[in-house]
Design a protein around this nucleic acid. Structure first.
Lengths: 119, 119
DNA sequence: CAATTACTAAAGTACTTGCTTGACTATTAC
DNA sequence: GTAATAGTCAAGCAAGTACTTTAGTAATTG
């Protein structure tokens, strides 16, 4: 529960940068080396490496070095976790709206005037 | 497309903080005033106000002031947008894995040995 | 072997965050 | 009107971020 919070911190923070999202987008099309990921980016390879480290620490991807090239692969679990958190919020919010709507319908039938949001 | 990127930057950055996620979680149960949101937090009301501003700028919530109390309400569109981005990545990744799996099955039938990741 | 390639490590820097405190402004209550 | 409430503004600060450059190391190639 507590580590869960930290994990979400890391994932959302990792995704809050366009370069890092671009890396994730690239990797959904298949694994790539650090060099391949850096090539289209308007910054130094060292900078891209730092982004990769952030993504790895957030568990959005994992890497493996073979010879002199490090290959990066997406690791979907972290992505799924973030999606689950968002989905949960959406569901709870919609459920609440439904309840509110139902209450309003009830009130309409009985001709009452107050909203009835249980504080 | 370009503003889209900025919007995602803002939403993910806003969600990368546990205090702000707690605010969003609270608001999924219904609107609340700044004071109500600040009460359970281990920081000054001014600090909570700043978090609320970040959330508002990311369009995760909207606020309205009536008399001397400002009421905050969740605004689900931004949340849905972030969820959509994540969902898209997951779908593309799974589709790729399916294709890869199908190729491996094919290869097995034909008794070939190479993987066939189109570089 | 020497040169190239593919990364890695470290230090420096401009900018941004997440707070704080203190002073201030409107409402509302007594 | 005076006092309490609910929020706002702004300055300041410690820590963190997103880069850079420079100087490496370990694999591969010719």
């Amino acid at each position: 529960m507590l580590d869960d919070q930290v994990a979400l911190d890391l994932v959302f923070h990792a995704l809050a940068d366009p370069t890092r999202r671009a890396i994730v987008e690239r990797l959904t099309r298949g694994p790539a080396s650090v060099g391949e990921l850096a090539a289209p980016m308007p910054m130094s390879l060292a900078a891209v490496m730092q982004h990769i480290r952030v993504l790895e620490e957030s568990r959005l991807l994992h890497t493996e070095k073979l010879g002199r090239v490090r290959t990066c692969t997406i690791a979907p679990e972290a992505l799924v976790r973030a999606e689950a958190w968002l989905g949960e919020r959406r569901i709870l919010w919609n459920r609440r709206l439904d309840r509110l709507g139902a209450l309003l319908d009830e009130d309409e039938k009985h001709g009452t005037e107050n909203e009835g949001t249980s504080s």
